[in-house]
Write a protein that binds this DNA or RNA. Sequence first.
RNA 1: GGUCGGUUCGUCUAGGGGUCUAGGACACCGCCCUUUCACGGCGGCGACACGGGUUCAAAUCCCGUACCGACUACCA
Length: 494
Amino acid sequence: MTTRVRFAPSPTGYLHIGSARTALFNYLFAKHVGGKFLLRIEDTDIERSTDESTRSILEGLQWLELQHDEEIVYQSNNAPKHRAVALKLLNEGKAYRDFTPREERSGADVKAAIQERAREQKDMRDNPFRDLPKEESDRKADAGEPFAIRLKVGASGKTIFDDAVYGFQERDYSEIEDLVLLRSDGHPLYNLAVVCDDIEMRITHVIRGQDHLTNTHKQVLIYEALNAEKPTFAHLPLILAPNKGKLSKRKHGEVVSMTTYRDNGFVAAAFRNFLVLLGWSAGEEKEIYTMDELVSKFSLDHIHKNNAVFNFDANDPRHWTDDKALWMNAEYIRTMPLEDLIPLVKAELKSAKLWRDEYEDDDKIHFEKTVDLIRERFFTLKDFSSQGRAFFSEDFDFDEAAIAKNLKKFSELQTWLPELAETLETVEDFTHDTLETVIKQFAEEKGGKFGVIMNGARTLLTGLAVGPSMLAVFETLGKEKTIRRLKSQIAWSQ
RNA sequence: GGUCGGUUCGUCUAGGGGUCUAGGACACCGCCCUUUCACGGCGGCGACACGGGUUCAAAUCCCGUACCGACUACCA
């Protein structure tokens, strides 16, 4: 039997990093065993689901390169089927009509209210309509009395299943209430919908967040009522906020959204690599994996049981997201094959209006050399257009601190650097070694320090106080720009 | 409250009775390299939640306690 898994987000917001990781694990598991990775949008919560959210989720998956197989299933399209199933269970006597008036639950304090209610320790089988004779139930229904349909959970017994991550699970029926299958307005509920759809989609492995672990018992009951074969369940540890609480948009903002990473210059492969290490490890010291390696190494039995903390400090710009994610991104930028990086840099330069078509034509080699040089110290793709701006444009800013530290502190540089430009004009072979000889000699003649001259040049040439080896910068920028910028007085007048 | 999970450096983790005076990565700190630096090299700091058992031997197995989390909806 082919392995079939699904990622089933509800479109009530952007793609959350926890969901993204769930999608990733599903994808890797499917690909590892040569199975199918399906996508189902659980848009049955009419009030909260939006098309925009669906789009955002799709974009996030696409960015991470988690291509789904087959057509996307929209759960709302299946509502009639879910309803039919509820009715079928009703006819078979496995479910019953509950004529209790609906209790409206809404607002921020639902959770508290539910907990409060749960504290009462009531008997899960005390519903007065549970054993209402069929005739009477039919009569009330025919009379137009609204009713919900509840699953009739056995008086005694227990549900069991063997979770691929958490192991053997059991729960006594007395802990499970007669769950509502169909709302009194005919709207099918989550547990019913999930089970029906998973059956219809022939899902073999349900891989999802640990927050569904206890729900699973209810679903197992539905599978059994339907005489359907249960899939294998595998629950994933949660990804928590630094305070070990739930990671949410309301409390934590943009850091939890996938689009934030895409929009802030993350390399998708790097973020994916970071994500896969949250709750899973191959049991080795290696940490950087290509997608192919992940597919071949991934397995459910290396998934942890304990939750992982997504560590970041909202008040510290340098640690605005998890340090390891940031490091991973930098690592990818400086070590990934240049040909894979180039398109990403191209996109970044385009969006910053710094892209020129020559970069992949006449100027291709030089462009690639430039990217290769400056990527060494970059953390995100944004750095190519910000810190790297001077390499792609004449219109760049000078860092105030750099001017103070590298130029104004040494006033003699104001005449020396233009003089250096004159000297460099005579250099035919504008390359690293030759430049080094010439500039060292120039420094000696002036009685100045080589380093001071180089750093002054750095600021004039790039606007910054940090960057790659200056001789390489000279060479990469080329003779013409080097000379022009060394002569420029713009920075001096700031 | 109940049920179910979980607990190894600040964070991500290796480990599944002896090879653990607990390994790696990130972060942090120091030194080195150097024309700068957020590169690189070397080093440092730093953890088995606690208490009982079982065993010749426990981070690893069992029990209890503490703490954290999930669930407990006519939400998903």
